[in-house]
Nucleic acid binder design. Sequence first.
DNA 1: GCTTTTTTGTACCGTATCGCAATTTATTTA
DNA 2: TAAATAAATTGCGATACGGTACAAAAAAGC
Lengths: 208, 208
Amino acid sequence: MQNDTKPKAAKRRGRPRSYDPEQALQQVMDSCWSGGYSATSLDDLSMATGMNRPSLYAAFGNKQSIYLQAMEKFSTHMAEQLEPALTADQPLEAALRAFYSRVLNVYFSGDDGPRGCMVMCTATSEAHADPQIRQYLDRTLQRIDALLISRFERALADGELPSDTDPATLGKLAATTMHSLALRSRAGQSRASLKRLSDASARMLARA
Amino acid sequence: MQNDTKPKAAKRRGRPRSYDPEQALQQVMDSCWSGGYSATSLDDLSMATGMNRPSLYAAFGNKQSIYLQAMEKFSTHMAEQLEPALTADQPLEAALRAFYSRVLNVYFSGDDGPRGCMVMCTATSEAHADPQIRQYLDRTLQRIDALLISRFERALADGELPSDTDPATLGKLAATTMHSLALRSRAGQSRASLKRLSDASARMLARA
DNA sequence: GCTTTTTTGTACCGTATCGCAATTTATTTA
DNA sequence: TAAATAAATTGCGATACGGTACAAAAAAGC
């Protein structure tokens, strides 16, 4: 196998970059997560990353492409945070509680006020007019569904649920609570109230 | 009591309006519902209403004020559509199914593709940076909670639910499904799949 | 040292943005 | 008919927008 794709110090030919693409994308993500797509200008992103606009363009493409990549980074981060709660060896209700707890950790992670889910809270606005953003939103929602459905399938296989329950439906209902947490946290509702809500949801879903 | 506030033909003093404020606000609502706040310009609104910008400004104030009034119109319309389902004389589960059915009627009402909830799908994007929009979003979510909670309180009083259930929690969980319908419809998910989801939610909540 | 390659920095293009001042038009009252 | 009132229209001002052309700068290859 060939190397030099990842081992970054591969002596590139021209002038070296003065920024770290990963870190820059992180800052782009942060800006768009706070302000949304339309309200965040390329100048804002230029400020946030320290890159000038031509460099931004060269690195990530046009504004829509930048935004889509930022959402992908968010999704990856999100998946890394959430998956352990569902794969861990614990009962269904505990797993759901842990899952929602981690969800809230992300939604409340901002420096100046909770921001909810970047995808659900900012892509929705553009989703009607922009097919690509709409598609990304849909696929994200489906990814979350699948994540939760698989946990309910496991619960069913483990005898944690009556054999006539439908894991696909329960998984989507569990996602439903996550969607609400996204909106409610961005609306400014208290973390304590959202913890109570998600606990109640976990309890109800685990005893379906 | 004095008249001439509503009986619109009250011979106003100067040049008569060439537009109907109610109808104009309706068209503003429609534009913002589709495009969101930041991506909808005053020129777009001017086009949609047929009013020129100064008239828009005189009638509804600045852009934020226009948007807030459009959301209020949406909320009023929404409440009119949804309340009958909850006040009608029918069992809890049927009431919830009727409620979600009416929700979907609104979310799928657009001429070019479903748009979900105007507040949940467009205000969220601005909510982090704009305190007034955030507050409007929060109050909207709370209004929906209250609407549903009152139905669960009635169900409890009518003996439709075990006496140890908490109507406040159930109401919020019911709202949770509505939030999800808002996002999912705007993401392009099929109405049939959302009907299945909301039916499942109604069944589960009515047997809590 | 000279060329090649890649990124940076500056400056700019054409257009769109929100908001408003000034003027014109249409209607009621005196 | 003349004054008063209110809305429509025009047009502008300042700036912000996404996107790019172009030259200077910094590294590697020869």
